[in-house]
């Protein structure tokens, strides 16, 4: 679930968990209406942004918290800890762990109960950039091994596209698009999604059929005295160099076509017809 802060994604997650009451609608898990069930009876487990570990308990106690609270066997703890590489840390307390280790403990606690649905509330946002990428892979491996349906909330579109089998894009509490990462990337349902997903965002310029959208890597730019655009600056973004161009009020970013021209020089931009997406000028919906 992808959305900007304040778009309601955490609230939605809490509503699914039953921590937040819903005023209307239903929550279905595997076709079963769980809207009226207590959180513990929905078969959901959650990993919080803050990890929400009990600071006074050892790793083992944290992982087994739910099992002990319900008076169940704690036999599964060892294997869950093993799977997440926590076996050597079972006697430590959260205060003695690194951010990544705490994250894994929170994940282990959630998985120990064998939930039907695993809810992850921005689990990577408290980790530093390098750890984020490796933990992202770890979450994906855990998901694939356990096969547990996982709802992962994030404001980071890269994370959403990298992790999700399907991506739900939320905007101001409403579902803007639900689709595979490819669909969200290739066919944004609205101009808003087109601008929200991607770095740089999709270019949107007025055209004859509405708003014309195209991605930087789909455009071919070349210096041309008769071109419509004016060169403003070049910028390296990872493997690519982007040219920022202006046409009247409109700004676009396209992949560089050779050595950067002088500021103010004219540039022509061509986009294959098949790579152009059209959006309604009024509603922003895809045409």
């Amino acid at each position: 679930m992808l959305g900007a802060s304040g778009s309601g994604k955490s609230t939605l997650l809490r509503a699914i968990a039953g921590l937040e009451e819903i005023a209307a609608g239903r929550v279905l898990i595997g076709g079963e209406d769980v809207s009226r069930l207590a959180p513990a009876r929905r078969g959901v487990a959650m990993v919080f942004q803050s990890f929400a570990l009990f600071p006074h308990m050892t790793v083992e106690r944290n992982i087994a918290f739910g099992l002990r609270a319900r008076g169940e066997s704690t036999q599964a703890v060892a294997s869950t800890a093993e799977a997440l590489g926590l076996s050597a840390l079972l006697d430590r307390r959260p205060g003695e762990l690194s951010g990544g280790e705490r994250q894994r403990v929170a994940l282990a606690r959630a998985l120990a109960a064998r939930p039907r649905v695993l809810l992850l509330d921005e689990p990577l946002s408290n980790l530093d950039a390098q750890l984020r990428v490796s933990t992202r892979g770890e979450i994906r491996r855990v998901q694939e091994r356990t096969g547990v349906t996982t709802l992962h909330v994030t404001h980071d579109q890269v994370e959403a596209l990298a992790l999700g089998h399907r991506v739900a894009v939320l905007r101001d509490g409403r579902l803007e698009q639900l689709g595979t990462p490819d669909e969200v990337w290739e066919r944004p349902a609205s101009a808003w999604v087109a601008r929200f997903v991607g770095t740089p965002p999709m270019n949107l310029v007025p055209g004859e059929r509405g708003l014309c959208g195209f991605r930087a890597e789909d455009a071919a730019a070349r210096v041309d005295p008769g071109g419509e655009y004016v060169f403003e600056l070049a910028e390296r973004v990872g493997a690519d160099v982007l040219w920022h161009l202006r046409r009247g009020e409109d700004l676009v970013a396209v992949r560089a076509g050779g050595a950067a021209p002088a500021v103010g020089e004219r540039v022509a931009v061509e986009v294959p017809e098949a790579r152009v997406r059209w959006f309604d000028r009024e509603t922003g919906r895809a045409l």
């Binding site: 039953g18 921590l19 319900r70």
Partner: peptide
């Protein structure tokens, strides 16, 4: 932190247990 109590609710811990253990 309120989230510790969210965890307790999700894990089905009874109030008395939460009082004693948390």
């Amino acid at each position: 932190p309120e989230e510790l109590y969210d965890v307790a609710r999700l894990e089905g811990a009874r109030p008395w247990y939460v009082l004693r253990a948390v």
